[in-house]
Lab assay of single mutants.
Amino acid sequence: KLETFPLDVLVNTAAEDLPRGVDPSRKENHLSDEDFKAVFGMTRSAFANLPLWKQQNLKKEKGLF
């Protein structure tokens, strides 16, 4: 399991300012399950079932792209 970080560490943070080991294209993977659901309004599995373009739009909207 990946290390999780608080939302404010990941949202609207440039790649070079992210904690070590965080993939800038997969910031959402480093949210706790609770934060993930609070941000996206759905579970990880529901998010994973969305088309890629919709996932990317949601990530942009939430500052996690």
Rank of each mutant, 00 (worst) to 15 (best):
K1F: 09
K1C: 03
L2G: 15
L2K: 15
E3K: 15
E3G: 13
E3F: 08
E3W: 04
T4F: 08
F5K: 15
L7W: 05
L7A: 07
L7C: 06
D8L: 01
V9L: 11
V9T: 08
V9I: 12
V11L: 13
N12M: 10
T13D: 12
T13L: 08
T13W: 10
A15Y: 07
A15W: 03
E16L: 03
D17K: 08
P19D: 05
R20C: 10
R20W: 07
R20T: 13
R20Y: 08
R20H: 13
R20E: 14
G21H: 08
V22H: 03
P24L: 06
P24Q: 08
S25A: 12
S25Y: 13
R26N: 15
K27N: 05
K27E: 05
N29I: 08
N29D: 07
H30N: 04
H30P: 04
H30V: 03
H30K: 06
L31V: 05
L31P: 05
S32F: 01
S32Y: 01
D33L: 04
D35W: 00
D35E: 05
F36T: 01
K37P: 06
F40P: 01
F40S: 01
G41H: 09
G41N: 07
G41Q: 10
M42Q: 04
T43H: 12
T43N: 12
R44H: 07
S45A: 09
A46E: 15
F47Q: 00
A48C: 07
N49F: 04
N49A: 14
L50I: 06
P51L: 00
L52F: 14
L52M: 14
W53K: 13
W53A: 14
W53N: 14
W53D: 12
W53H: 09
K54G: 02
K54T: 13
K54N: 08
Q56H: 13
N57C: 13
N57G: 10
N57K: 14
L58C: 02
L58D: 00
K59C: 05
K60R: 10
E61A: 09
K62E: 04
K62P: 02
K62W: 04
G63R: 05
G63I: 01
G63T: 03
L64K: 08
L64N: 05
F65M: 14
F65E: 15
